[in-house]
Design a protein around this nucleic acid. Structure first.
Lengths: 225, 225
DNA sequence: TCAAAAGTGTTCCTTCTACACCCATGT
DNA sequence: ACATGGGTGTAGAAGGAACACTTTTGA
């Protein structure tokens, strides 16, 4: 819906402030019997949940909820791997979860939020690969979906929205072009409210218009909703 | 690389001839012990291959080769499902395979090529879902990758290329715009040869310039190549 | 000479990009 | 009054879409 072509770094503004996005990558490991869940980056989750009779994606939803104490605002299956180095074959299904900053995630067994700027290689090659792939997907989807929605609170300013884009793409964008594109896309609704939070002009608060596009983009609809 | 925006049906040419694309959707079913392969549409494959110590994607490559007698020109993992209706949990990893029409696929246990125009619902809901999803992905990737390459012979005419696009998208395109876009994209190389095959002007034969983009688009690089 | 597919340019319009200043507020 | 982030317009470039006729060949 929203088209975001790559824009070369702008001169007029260079400040890419990181708004600490709540992104989480989770792996479901299946050994043929049990499903084990692990959140990538931050600490590994001890959460090990036995197989239940539910769809895979639902298991991911549930495991992430149990791990973070909160429901993911958006969940997308990424890819399925089978890292079988000598040992018995294992199947690992990877997921990307996005959270609204509204939600109070329980500290739990380590904070799941993952700094996009993070570059320290993980011990596990697979986790590193999934993490990088998640970022590729997230960046790509910024261009043709409203996925950024799921990383923002219910109402937000255009600057917040732009910062979200910039921190995911790690690239500064032109303010006027960005705002024009977003408004033109028609997915934003001006709530009429203003946010005043500093010694400067208050910002208009927007919300997203509906969000019925989750299922339709490059990912099959989740089964058995 | 190649941008193909949707174009409304053109008046000047309405003939969308189906060039019988060699597309195959395969499922790997894992019950925890064995992997069972099935090609979707056409007859189900009897091919049942026990677990080997190899990466999942490699298993898919091999199974498709064993089923068709030929290597897929392109293989992409689609999505992973877990259809567990009462029975024991099963994990089904779906793949999309593309073949060059050059290759002589063994008739084997039923022709795997799948008519894109086909609309008869399959008995199996999951297979139907995967089939539709494969088409969504294929269509989407036409717009930003050279994926059509994998459905064409080594050299081809611009008309062949256009027919491939048209039959996948099920939509006629303007000849001049199509050719201009393709040429401008820089991925085509004029071989200098001509193909004469009828009582009409011979067509220039092209080939694709390199094809090093397979791994870079929305799919992680296949592990352990 | 006819049929059949190959090949070729231009115009219009939409969208992207680059770019700089005033506005509203709190201190 | 000043510092801070909010908010705005325009002109040039590039790319997409619509559109029809000539060319080359085999029969």
């Amino acid at each position: 819906m929203i088209h975001t072509r790559s824009q070369p770094p702008s001169q007029s503004q260079v400040s890419v402030t990181e708004p600490s996005l709540r992104v989480c990558v989770a792996l479901l490991r299946w050994n043929g019997e049990d499903l084990e869940a692990a959140a990538v980056h931050g600490d590994h989750l001890p959460a090990t949940i036995p197989t239940a009779d539910e769809a895979l994606d639902q298991t991911a939803v549930r495991i992430i909820r149990e791990s973070t104490g909160v429901d993911a605002h958006y969940l997308e299956q990424l890819y399925t791997f089978s890292p079988s180095q000598g040992g018995p074959r294992q199947i690992v299904i990877s997921y990307l979860a996005l959270f609204s900053p509204d939600t109070a995630m329980s500290p739990g067994p380590g904070n799941l939020t993952w700094s996009l700027a993070e570059t320290t290689p993980l011990e596990d090659d697979l986790e590193q690969l999934v993490l990088e792939y998640a970022l590729v997907r997230l960046r790509a989807k910024l261009g043709y979906t409203n996925i950024a929605f799921y990383l923002l609170p219910a109402t937000f300013t255009l600057s917040q929205l732009q910062q979200t884009y910039e921190s995911i793409l790690n690239q500064a964008m032109d303010k006027r072009n960005f705002r024009r594109r977003m408004i033109a896309s028609g997915i934003l609704v001006d709530t009429g409210e203003k946010r005043r939070e500093g010694s400067h002009r208050p910002a208009a608060l927007y919300r997203f218009r509906e969000h019925d596009d989750q299922a339709s983009y490059l990912t099959p609809p989740l089964l058995a909703t």
